[in-house]
Computed example of a mutant assay.
Amino acid sequence: MTTNSTYTYQQIARAIEHLTANFREQPSLNELADKANLSEFHFQRLFTEWAGVSPKKFSQYLTLEHAKNKLRSGAPLIDVAHESGLSGTGRLHDLFVTIEGVTPGQFKQAGSGLVLSYGLFDSPFGRYVLGAINGKIALLHFLNDVDEPETILKIAWPEATLRNEPDVIKPLADQIFPVMGEFSQLPTKPLPVLLRGSVFQLKVWEALLKIPEGQLASYDQIAEAIGQPTASRAVGTAIGSNPVGYLIPCHRVIKKTGLFGGYRWGSDRKQAMLGWEAARVDQ
């Protein structure tokens, strides 16, 4: 992923924002290209290169009806309720993600002396900071213009010593996002993720891994899956505090009405992810 990919996403994101707000009116190619500050020809080419589908096809993935259909045909998340323990392995799009969960109490007992290596990288959804502890991904946070990466890392892992070592964790970053247009690219080895949270949070985050790429789940479905069907509001709070964006796919949870709802890293980015994943599944 090159630095140019972040600029590409910024251009595409402006068009997606307009497309999402006006999909019922089916904005013209010229209208979308104007939002991206590109000619129609270059916008069509750039958008198709980024998404794998045309802007018109992408807009179909952002409709309310499409979202409702995906909710109805979602994965059997209730199976998660029958699994014991906090740790497990889930298949996530074309990646294997292995979770290790620790509660704050457990972490406090063994938290001293930890080193958190981090670096800044580009993705199809903009720039992000990636942090790892002992070779395990401990944070993936998408950045906006005012974010301070070290502040974000310190809030998430206050006891850890920070080291700016992008070369050390680049092998992890290289496995997270496929190269632009390489929809069949597979990882070379499992991606280990270290999550620090309450027992309830860990159960919610683990449940998210059961949502296949291209599918959606509601907050109620996640609550039911963890065996607490009346806790949908608490589930929403736990989802909103997910420290590992994209890999723990909180972007795949939407309202039961089919509306996409908010997202920790911006609703436009959430919609970009959902449309991008839908296009990958259709390949």
Rank of each mutant, 00 (worst) to 15 (best):
G131M: 03
I16C: 02
H18S: 04
T98Q: 06
L77F: 09
L62Q: 11
D94K: 14
G135C: 06
W50E: 02
T257P: 01
T63G: 08
R196L: 15
F121L: 07
D79N: 13
L86A: 01
I133D: 06
R269T: 12
I239A: 08
P55S: 08
I176F: 12
P187E: 08
N134R: 14
G262K: 11
K56Q: 13
I16M: 01
E165F: 02
Y128W: 06
A223F: 03
P76T: 10
L71A: 09
L64R: 15
P249Q: 04
N242S: 13
E148I: 15
L46A: 10
N144G: 13
G214V: 09
L140C: 06
A67P: 01
I254F: 05
A75Q: 07
S267L: 04
G52M: 05
P55R: 07
L274Y: 04
G126V: 06
Y246L: 08
Y9H: 14
N164T: 03
T3F: 05
A21F: 07
F177R: 12
D94I: 01
R163Q: 13
A234V: 03
A132V: 00
K203W: 00
S112C: 00
A110E: 10
Q11D: 03
V53Y: 03
P55K: 09
I222T: 04
N69K: 14
K170A: 15
Y128L: 11
G197R: 07
R252E: 00
I152M: 10
N164W: 08
R163T: 09
M180N: 01
N37K: 14
T237A: 08
V102W: 06
G266I: 08
P76M: 10
H141Y: 13
P76V: 12
I254E: 00
Y9K: 09
T48R: 14
C250N: 13
R233G: 00
Y128E: 03
G181Y: 04
V193Q: 10
Q60S: 13
S112V: 00
V129K: 05
N144T: 13
F23W: 13
D122I: 01
I99N: 02
E40M: 03
P192M: 09
N4R: 15
I12A: 06
E150D: 12
K108W: 00
I137L: 15
E277D: 09
D94P: 01
N134I: 03
N30V: 13
D220N: 14
M180R: 12
Q175R: 15
I254Q: 02
M273Q: 13
W265Q: 11
L191A: 04
D147Y: 09
G245Q: 05
E224I: 12
L216R: 12
T63P: 07
Y219T: 02
Y219V: 03
N22W: 11
E100H: 06
P55T: 05
G131F: 03
L259S: 11
A217K: 06
L259Q: 12
S84F: 09
Q283H: 15
S241N: 14
E31N: 07
L19P: 02
T6F: 01
E25N: 10
G135L: 07
L194C: 02
H18Y: 14
P178E: 09
A67F: 12
G101I: 00
L95M: 10
G111M: 03
S5T: 14
P243I: 08
L172H: 05
A238G: 06
I137E: 04
P104S: 05
K154I: 10
S54Q: 07
V193R: 10
L247D: 03
R264S: 08
N4P: 00
K255C: 01
